[in-house]
Computed example of a mutant assay.
Amino acid sequence: MIKKILKKTFNFFGYSLHKKKKHVKQSKPILDNVFSMESALVRCVKRGLEINTVIDVGASDGRWSNMCMNIFPKASYILVEAQPEHEEGLLEFKNENPNIDYILAAAGKKNGTIYFDNTELFSGLATEKKLDENCIEVPMISLDSEIKKRNLDGPYLLKLDTHGFEIPILEGAKELIKKAELIIIETYNYKLTDDSLKYYEMCSYMEGLGFSSIEMVDFMRRKYDDSFWQMDTFFIPSSSKEFTYNSYS
């Protein structure tokens, strides 16, 4: 009876009466992206990761390293980028941060020169074969030679955003890899070139180098058919303490 009276009263004044919905407390924010690059790096630090030098290959204008500096602000950073169009951004980034330096070159197996497909500013690819279109010749450096020349100390974090040219870069980084505590590689569900590896093949290759996958982040679908295209895979030494425990809880 009281409920009906209240309803009529509210209706008379142009209002309606509704039952209040019960608020369900969320244990975690709904928009919290645990599979983001930054979230994974934070988790690695919580597990004890320490880094002295970050080598960012395929650095573009430095945006990835800029994010990484939030997690490793005291590390030294070497950014390797082949496309000259990014130099203005890299120079600005270096001038703002004393722990930053960059190399305008492609990374590869040895020092020299190599061709580069610069069709897209943020999606270039080194290639030993000269292309008919959108092809420039750029310097090539091995990461081992740069680390030695600059006397940069480990432990290292190596990040590769190199669109299928990963194996030659890793072959030119054998000494670096010995002191690497984290290697982040952009891995693919499709074979980008005749010599590139799909993500599961990359995992097998890295196992051969003594590294195992610990995180997978930044999943991407391709525009063509909305299928799984790529992700960034984190590799740490297979001897790491994380792999001594094989249970869920």
Rank of each mutant, 00 (worst) to 15 (best):
I103V: 13
Y115T: 00
I147E: 05
D132F: 03
V54A: 11
I147K: 06
K129Y: 08
P98K: 13
I71V: 14
K94V: 04
G124M: 07
T162R: 02
D161P: 09
P139M: 00
K129W: 05
E166V: 08
Y115G: 00
T119N: 05
A107M: 08
K149R: 15
E120P: 04
L131D: 03
Y77P: 06
E88R: 09
G62Y: 03
K110F: 08
L157W: 07
Y102A: 02
E171C: 03
K149T: 12
E146P: 08
K74Y: 12
T127A: 06
L158Y: 10
Y115W: 15
F116S: 01
E81F: 07
V57K: 06
E166F: 06
M67H: 11
L152I: 06
T127K: 13
G172H: 13
L170S: 10
D61A: 11
T119Y: 02
I100E: 04
Q83I: 06
P139F: 01
K149H: 07
Y115K: 00
N70F: 01
S123W: 08
A126F: 11
P155V: 03
E133Q: 11
L152Q: 11
K129A: 11
G172R: 11
E146R: 14
L104M: 14
L143R: 05
E88M: 11
N66G: 11
N118M: 12
A75M: 04
C68P: 02
G89M: 02
L158K: 12
K130V: 02
L104E: 01
I167F: 04
K148N: 13
A75V: 08
G62T: 11
L91I: 10
P73M: 10
